[in-house]
Design a protein around this nucleic acid. Structure first.
Length: 281
DNA sequence: CCGCGATCCTGGGGGC
DNA sequence: TGCCCCCAGGATCGCG
């Protein structure tokens, strides 16, 4: 579920609690999510002050004052919610843990942050902050599409010579990191490029268009609080609303807003691709 | 290098 | 109501 815009939305929602906050206690209610929690997970978090909350691709990174970083990935169905934000002297009462509330952080401020993940494709890890870039999760990650280094040149270089379909290349986190099924479909439609095209066949003008539309679509989605299909919530529980702005995703059979032809659904690498065959060339 | 299918999970929706 | 099958925003792995 969460692609870059959803993760960024979550980061912004958590930042006021995390940044500068101290984790008074932490609880993992099961031994694993997708992977086992790292050794001494709770002990390494307890009492730590959070210096910064960053995002890299679809990962959230909480830098701790211990020199370590808490790495969090939401998988397909992970979400965070913030509870008990202090209002004057009154803190919201602590409720019973809900179904799939797997992790909880209690901050010294009295605010609690709960991680919920029905499918448990998400995971958490802790690693040395200074060595994060060498961590196996990050070593092979591609360019950050909202970063300063991303543009037509960077896009051209990661697509050059690639015979795989454009759709597959854009989903490959080793080339561009952070795009998922929704925003790849939306960006290709906005750039009028067929998902079936060989990735390496784009002409310079097409690469420029695609780079521009990737950035534009992601920024618009962040502005809208992400897309809520089922699970995604902002940390205060409100829904994202970028799904109302989808041009093609999950709109099979509807009319293309650009040319009026019917939007098609195809399957590529086992995943749905939504596109307009009439105007995406 | 490449595409594909299976895999890790739970839950929602549609068809019957 | 209920059951069964298919599908889902991610990501990795092994296969041919």
């Amino acid at each position: 579920m969460p692609e870059l815009p959803e993760v960024e939305t979550v980061r912004r929602g958590l930042a006021p609690t995390f940044v500068g906050g101290t984790i008074a206690s932490a609880e993992a209610r099961r031994p694993d999510l997708r992977f086992p929690f790292p050794a001494r997970f709770v002990a390494r978090l307890t009492g730590r002050r959070v210096a910064d909350l960053r995002r890299r691709a679809k990962y959230l990174l909480a830098d701790l004052d211990s020199g370590e970083t808490l790495i969090m990935h939401l998988g397909m169905s992970g979400s965070f919610r913030v509870e008990g934000a202090p209002v004057g002297e009154f803190y919201h009462p602590r409720g019973q843990p809900g179904t799939h509330d797997h992790v909880e952080f209690a901050f010294a401020s009295g605010v609690r942050v709960v991680y919920n993940d029905p499918r448990r494709f998400g995971f958490m890890d802790i690693a040395e902050t200074a060595k994060l870039e060498a961590h196996p999760l990050f070593a092979g990650l591609g360019v950050e599409p909202l970063g300063p280094e991303f543009g037509p040149g960077a896009l051209a270089s990661v697509l050059e010579g690639v015979r795989a379909p454009l759709k597959a290349a854009l989903l490959d986190q080793r080339r561009i990191a952070g795009l998922g099924n929704i925003y790849v479909c939306e960006a290709m439609h906005a750039a009028r490029l067929s998902p079936l095209r060989a990735a390496g066949s784009l002409k310079p003008a097409e690469t420029r268009r695609l780079a521009q539309e990737i950035r534009r679509v992601l920024e618009a989605a962040i502005e809208a609080g992400g897309s809520t299909l089922r699970d995604h919530r902002q940390t205060d529980g409100t829904l994202g609303y970028f799904q109302h702005a989808f041009a093609v995703y999950d709109r099979e059979g509807a009319a293309c807003g650009h040319c009026g032809a019917l939007i098609l659904r195809a399957v590529q690498s086992g995943r749905s691709t939504f596109y307009c065959a009439a105007c995406q060339k």
